[in-house]
Design a protein around this nucleic acid. Sequence first.
DNA 1: CGGTATCCCCCGCGATACTG
DNA 2: CAGTATCGCGGGGGATACCG
Lengths: 227, 227
Amino acid sequence: MRQAYGQFCPVALASEVLAERWTFLVVRELLAGARRFNEIRRGVPRLSATLLKQRLQRLEAEGIVERGRSSRRSAAGYELTSAGVALKPVIAAVGEWGQRWARDIEAKDLDPGWLVWAMHRRLNTAVMPPGRTVIEIEFVDAPASTRQFWLVHSGGAVDVCIKDPGYEPDVRVATPLRLWAEIWRGLRPLKAAMRSGAVRLDGRADLRRDFPGWLMLSVFAPVGRLR
Amino acid sequence: MRQAYGQFCPVALASEVLAERWTFLVVRELLAGARRFNEIRRGVPRLSATLLKQRLQRLEAEGIVERGRSSRRSAAGYELTSAGVALKPVIAAVGEWGQRWARDIEAKDLDPGWLVWAMHRRLNTAVMPPGRTVIEIEFVDAPASTRQFWLVHSGGAVDVCIKDPGYEPDVRVATPLRLWAEIWRGLRPLKAAMRSGAVRLDGRADLRRDFPGWLMLSVFAPVGRLR
DNA sequence: CGGTATCCCCCGCGATACTG
DNA sequence: CAGTATCGCGGGGGATACCG
């Protein structure tokens, strides 16, 4: 509570909690459906366990988050309360502003693992083939350790692998990292990048054709950049 | 730029700037029409000059604020750019959430000077009498130094005085501080408080009758509290 | 998996005084 | 009025190792 601003304006009272470092990102993860501690961490990889715990405790104290019911303590996930769900328009407004007006991205923002993690939540599994589908992503200009990822869809669930899962990929995507980030953000059309050869697809012709329809892109991709 | 979160999600990019301590309050002041350095300070009294300058510089670097044109440097005010004006929905969303869901106010949040400063921007001067009107506010339970204030309206402009301006008040208001804060926030109706005698009005009968119509209350007063 | 515990550094920020 | 300069501290938080 050291963040007290000494005024009872609703913007000030809300900021005491919300405008702490990392908090918007934690709330974003919870709104996106994350429930487990480490699930949140994967969406906010640079946030340490200690600090995440602190933020979650603060959010719990403020009535924004509550622990799920479970006999075992560590099996209890984190859930948004009504007050937490009510933050959806706040995050939406912040994200829309960010998409329109925030600074351009730099090399240090381009975390391949995070990008793939974001993708795995935005695959339109309803239109994907039944059975198992494996998508391999290769960032052609990334160092070996973050060069390849696999998205494994099966029965509506999508897993992210950082090692070859052993199954033959149905579709392989090879792309420069920054270009893929720009496509993800809605700043460039995927199809043009495929036509120009900057993004290369490999796999059966029908799957290559359908692949763009599986990708829902970033939630904020439809928001036009104005900066 | 130490606030970098290492991801290019628009929520993260926006948070780097916006989720710094004090920043929302500075932006709130600018959106409310503040232009001069010390005008902003009056709306955020606990923010030091040094830190305010830092925040304004950051906002300028991010393209949210720009200096007005003027020959003399210090005559140049601060203005919101298009990117800055676009923060209006963000502040609105934060404030609405705060009004509905933020913690209850405590004694430390009840700054009488700030409350009067907020009031001075929300007087409906269009419906006030022509010529000069002086409103005296007395917080009956406040210490002597923050007990009395005067709002002086003249020709559409409203000044706040912390000393007796010398003019005879047209309306005198005597109220407990917390009660007035709750009325201001829209949590209690002014008229009921007047009827019960908790808020006492003094002055000519017609002015006493009209006085409630002069007060526009907090921007967020119409938002219903849910907590 | 879901945390704790500890150590330590750095820098954010408050306070105070001074200036064009 | 609109800052700048300086100093000093507190604690936020990064790194690392450990635990139920």
